[in-house]
Computed example of a mutant assay.
Amino acid sequence: MNNIIAIPAFKDNYIWAIHSLEGNKIIVVDPGDASPVLDYLQANKLSLHAILITHHHFDHSGGIKALQAQFPNIAVYGSKNEFTEGVTSTIEEGSQLYFPEFNLTLNVLDIPGHTKGHIAYYNEEILFCGDTLFSCGCGKIFEGTPSQMLQSLEKLKQLSAETMMYCGHEYTKANIAFAQTVDPTNAALAQRLAEVLKCEAQGRPTLPTKLKNEFACNPFLRVNTQEIILAVQKHWNFEAIDPVTLFSHLREWKNQF
Rank of each mutant, 00 (worst) to 15 (best):
M1R: 08
I5R: 12
I5K: 13
A6V: 02
P8M: 03
W16Q: 05
I18E: 07
S20N: 10
G23I: 02
G32A: 03
A34S: 13
Y40M: 08
L41M: 06
N44W: 11
L48T: 04
L48E: 04
H49F: 15
L52R: 11
H55F: 12
H56T: 04
H60E: 13
H60G: 14
G62F: 06
G62R: 04
G63D: 10
K65C: 14
Q68W: 09
Q70C: 09
F71K: 08
P72A: 05
N73F: 12
Y77H: 08
K80W: 09
E82F: 02
F83R: 14
F83V: 11
T88K: 06
S89H: 15
S89F: 14
E92G: 10
E92H: 11
S95T: 00
Q96T: 08
Q96E: 12
L97N: 03
Y98T: 11
F99E: 07
F102C: 07
F102L: 07
T105E: 10
L106T: 00
L109F: 09
I111T: 01
I111K: 04
G113I: 00
G113H: 01
T115G: 03
H118K: 07
I119S: 00
I119Q: 02
L127W: 05
L127M: 07
F128T: 00
T132Q: 01
F134P: 03
G137D: 01
K140N: 15
F142H: 15
E143K: 10
G144E: 02
S152V: 00
L153S: 01
K155C: 00
E162G: 12
M164K: 14
M165T: 09
H169F: 11
T172G: 05
T172K: 07
K173C: 09
A177G: 13
A177P: 12
F178A: 00
A179M: 03
T181S: 14
P184F: 01
N186D: 00
L189C: 04
A190I: 01
Q191Y: 14
L193K: 08
A194H: 12
E195M: 11
L197F: 12
C199K: 10
C199G: 11
E200S: 10
G203I: 07
P205D: 06
T209E: 13
T209P: 11
K210P: 11
N213G: 09
N213R: 12
N213W: 13
A216P: 08
A216I: 04
L221T: 01
L221V: 01
R222M: 00
V223H: 03
T225G: 03
A231M: 04
Q233Y: 09
W236A: 06
N237T: 05
N237H: 15
F238C: 10
A240I: 01
V244T: 01
L246N: 02
F247K: 05
H249R: 14
E252G: 11
W253F: 07
K254M: 09
